[in-house]
């Protein structure tokens, strides 16, 4: 079974993945485009998502070895940083963090991650908007058209406007996910 989904919040992604596993599936592949592959299984699996910044190859190997020794399977992830997907058969110890300090550090890593993505999106937003301004989002001639011609042109142009606004939308989404990590961090 293949499912497509897109997440801007790692905890929502983890929750969604575990909901799929509870229906009797096991995750076998996750592509960076957001295609999740599942296989039917009669065992109970759990997934946990960790976030790591850039790790040199050797460090990443050490990181993976420790998790694998504890019975976790590496589903997907990259050594240059990002979400690390771990899966294992449900058992006594289903968590990847066992104390407050490490859980807090995890939320701190997430905060850094979403903040850097939010700032990057904000940077592109300002670049686009200083280049053309809000009024430049639609063609100037559009506003002087009338009737059905206006609407046709308006509908035609809107997807392109949304594309130009994509960095702004992303900045808001990553900003929200930063705030959520911060909330979780302060509650640990």
């Amino acid at each position: 079974m293949k499912k497509c989904n897109m997440f801007f919040n790692i905890e929502k992604e983890e929750k969604w993945l575990n909901e799929q596993l509870q229906a009797g599936y096991r995750c076998t592949n996750i592509s960076w485009l957001g295609v999740y592959t599942f296989n039917k299984t009669d065992k109970n699996y759990v997934m946990r998502l960790d976030y790591q910044g850039y790790l040199p190859k050797k460090k990443h190997q050490e990181y993976k070895t420790i998790y694998e020794d504890f019975g976790w399977d590496y589903v997907e992830g990259y050594s240059f940083g990002g979400i690390q997907y771990w899966q294992k058969e449900s058992g006594e110890q289903n968590d990847i963090f066992s104390d407050r300090e490490s859980k807090g550090n995890y939320y701190k890593r997430l905060m850094g991650y979403s903040l850097s993505l939010a700032l990057m999106s904000l940077f592109f937003t300002t670049m686009i908007l200083t280049d053309m301004g809000f009024s430049g989002l639609y063609h100037e001639g559009l506003w002087s058209m009338d009737g059905s011609l206006f609407w046709k042109a308006f509908v035609f142009e809107t997807p392109f406007v949304l594309l130009k606004l994509a960095p702004a939308i992303l900045a808001i989404l990553f900003g929200c996910s930063f705030y959520k990590s911060y909330r979780n961090y302060s509650m640990v």
């Binding site: 960790d50 998790y67 020794d69 504890f70 990847i96 066992s98 490490s102």
Partner: peptide
């Protein structure tokens, strides 16, 4: 005290 892998890796 039963450590989980993420905690152990971070502490090391």
């Amino acid at each position: 005290v039963v450590l989980a892998p993420g905690t152990l890796y971070g502490a090391i």
